[in-house]
């Protein structure tokens, strides 16, 4: 493990050195970005030449991205340019859609999640997901909702269940609001509370990566604030990839930002630019990125 890490770091440095000589490098190479960055540069997910199809329609083309451990990566861009499609390909959730298929590699902890012997169920236990609309299980109490992944996944740790519920609800900034009504139905909560419940539910399976698909788009500003606060703490233990349409949110919470864009109608979506958030929002390399983050279109 140590060996591997050193190698990664060396490769990283090599690549970042390269980059200085070619300032106008394309996004695909930007993926190997400067290692003098925000945190340790150990990648947890590496996406290589990922293209995605729905039937014969190509939704996404040649995405390359490196997601560092314990970072928050925001994905921004106009609607319909493949952001949600992209994060679903990381935990193979796109497979629910008939005729969806993927080309390229998604490497999670050194293993390709699309290798033939990989069980998508196991991938999803390592890469949790929070959806756009809160979707707690309607037949379960708040308590059981949090534990659903543990109980239904067959990974049952005896005796620690109460502790898991309290810890994850605290991490999701929901504990104080629900600690006296854990036996009530999960759908009895408000929309913002339901979404935090869904976050707690995802944390309970202890994933390494948490994918969030516009988790706050259906929520009021107060709930959004609470979810953002929770994410600040989540970074300590998890890696977060979040799709958002809210530019301020991306700027506030993320370490890295990826901008997805479609140049011409009907083209597949591409990762147009990917860099540290501070750079993306102050001095991006590409004009479209700048136009988008400054609100000139989209």
């Amino acid at each position: 493990m140590t060996m591997k890490r050193t190698e990664e770091t060396m490769r990283e440095e090599g690549r970042s050195g390269d980059r200085e000589h070619r300032p106008n490098t394309r996004t695909t190479e930007v993926a190997g970005r400067s290692s003098g960055g925000v945190k340790s540069a150990e990648p947890v997910v590496t996406v290589e030449n990922l293209s995605m199809y729905y039937g014969s329609f190509k939704a996404l083309q040649d995405v390359n991205m490196r997601i560092d451990r314990n970072s928050v990566t925001a994905l921004i861009g106009p609607s319909g340019c493949g952001k949600s499609t992209f994060i679903r390909s990381i935990n193979r959730m796109h497979e629910i859609v008939p005729k969806a298929r993927v080309e390229g590699k998604v490497i999670l902890d050194g293993e390709d999640v699309y290798a033939p012997d990989v069980d998508p169920v196991r991938v999803r236990r390592k890469v949790g997901m929070v959806f756009q609309k809160p979707n707690p299980f309607p037949t379960m109490s708040i308590y059981d909702n949090v534990l659903a992944g543990i109980k239904l996944g067959g990974k049952r740790k005896k005796g620690e269940l109460d502790e898991v519920v309290e810890r994850t609800l605290r991490q999701a900034a929901l504990w104080d609001e629900v600690k006296d009504k854990l036996k009530q139905g999960g759908t009895s909560l408000s929309g913002g509370q339901q979404q935090r419940l869904c976050i707690a539910r995802t944390l309970a399976i202890e994933p390494e990566v948490i994918l969030m698909d516009e988790p706050a788009s259906a929520l009021d500003p107060v709930s959004t604030q609470k979810i953002e606060d929770a994410m600040e703490d989540l970074k300590e233990r998890y890696t977060v990839v979040i799709v958002t349409h809210n530019m301020q949110q991306a700027a506030r919470i993320s370490d890295y930002t990826g901008f997805f864009f479609i140049e011409n109608m009907g083209d597949p979506g591409r990762l147009w630019e990917f860099d540290e958030t501070s750079k993306m929002f102050s001095n991006p390399n590409r004009k479209e990125t700048e136009d988008y983050v400054t609100g000139r279109f989209g």
Binding site: N91, M93, I96, V121, R122, V123, R124, R125, K126, G128, M129, F131, K133, N135, P136, F137, P138, A148, G149, L152, G153, C198, R201, T202, I205
Partner: peptide, 13 residues
């Protein structure tokens, strides 16, 4: 709703 199925599958069930 499919969102319920997605929620469960997304938890690795």
């Amino acid at each position: 709703p499919d969102s319920i199925r997605e929620a469960s599958l997304g938890l690795g069930v």
